[in-house]
């Protein structure tokens, strides 16, 4: 079977090589986007469902100030857990996130450059931009863009934000999200995510993705589907919601807002708790909509208040 789809090019040491180690893929993307002028941030230190939730994306996308950042974000999707048994699905995975405001004229070319940097040769592979408009009901956000395909596989999401937290983006930011595991599986030619080479080592030196995460997938699947205390979670949701509103109220000083970031943390928290409750299967279809609306109201309030801060251009 021809799975070694990605031809070797230069010979970086395996520990840095995007085709031979998971960390090499991350390092190559970081290097590329650092050269493109992005601030290389670190993951946000809270549980989020996607890199978009990081304040460096969702809040910085609002307001007039230019912004360029790139970072890895661990993303938690409690419902996607499969007890470490599915070769493609994880309840915890990594996204590589790039946000550029305003979206540069050559954003597509930059993106294609980043693929080249991780060893995807556009003359050997079929790279395509396939319509996929993005919408996040919880964040009150939408944008137009594509899913980017490499030989029929979706490797990234490419979005021009039009609205965030219910507010029109002016100017518009461009957002790129790479699903790192899937991309790594492709460039390493691996069929099961747990077989990914994480550190580039061989033999006894080799640390696989499974070595790092399989046990976590099993334990968190148990937690997400069976064990998480539902009553506590409901209470935490109410607490986070109340705290978010309370912090915004306390932070309001005339035309300024002094505590939007702590308030937004509570919004993120509420969102993750909702995802856990959803995984526990205790939220009915009708309730589901109302929980999403409650989180959206928090996100919208934070977005509105962000514009009253210095970084928000207020």
């Amino acid at each position: 079977m021809n799975t070694a789809a990605i031809a070797p090019q230069n010979s970086a040491p395996a520990v840095f090589d995007p085709r031979r180690s998971f960390q090499g893929l991350i390092l190559a993307l970081q290097k590329f986007w650092a050269e493109a002028g992005c601030a290389l941030l670190q993951p946000y230190d809270m549980e989020v469902g996607a890199g978009t939730f990081h304040p460096a994306t969702i809040l910085r996308a609002l307001g007039p100030r230019p912004w360029r950042a790139a970072y890895v974000q661990p993303s938690r999707r409690p419902k996607d857990g499969r007890y470490g048994e599915n070769p493609n699905r994880l309840q915890h995975y990594y996204q590589f996130q790039v946000i550029l405001k305003p979206s540069p004229e050559n954003l597509q070319d930059l993106y294609l450059g980043s693929l080249a940097a991780i060893g995807i040769d556009a003359h050997l592979h079929d790279i395509r931009f396939v319509e996929d408009d993005w919408e996040s009901p919880t964040l009150g956000a939408w944008g137009l863009g594509w899913e980017c395909w490499c030989d029929g596989m979706e490797v990234s999401q490419f979005t021009y934000f039009q609205q965030v937290a219910g507010i029109e983006c002016a100017p518009v930011a461009g957002e790129l999200t790479y699903g790192l595991e899937r991309l790594a599986m492709y460039v390493q030619g691996v069929e099961n995510v747990f077989d990914l080479n994480f550190n580039g080592g061989e033999g006894a030196e080799r640390i696989s993705y499974g070595d790092v995460f399989r046990q976590a997938e099993q334990e968190y699947s148990r937690h997400n589907f069976e064990a998480a205390n539902v009553e506590t979670l409901f209470q935490h949701f109410r607490d986070a919601e109340a705290e978010c509103q309370s912090l915004l109220a306390k932070g309001a000083q005339g035309e300024r807002q002094l505590m939007v970031l702590p308030a937004y943390d509570q919004c993120i928290k509420a969102s993750h708790i909702f995802n856990l409750l959803d995984a526990r299967g205790v939220i009915s279809v009708t309730e589901r909509q109302s929980y999403i609306l409650r989180v959206r109201e928090l996100a919208k309030a934070c977005g509105r208040e962000w514009l009253k801060t210095e970084a928000g251009g207020g």
Partner: peptide, 8 residues
């Protein structure tokens, strides 16, 4: 959609 610096 709008895009780029003109979208301000």
């Amino acid at each position: 959609m709008r895009w780029g610096s003109a979208s301000a």
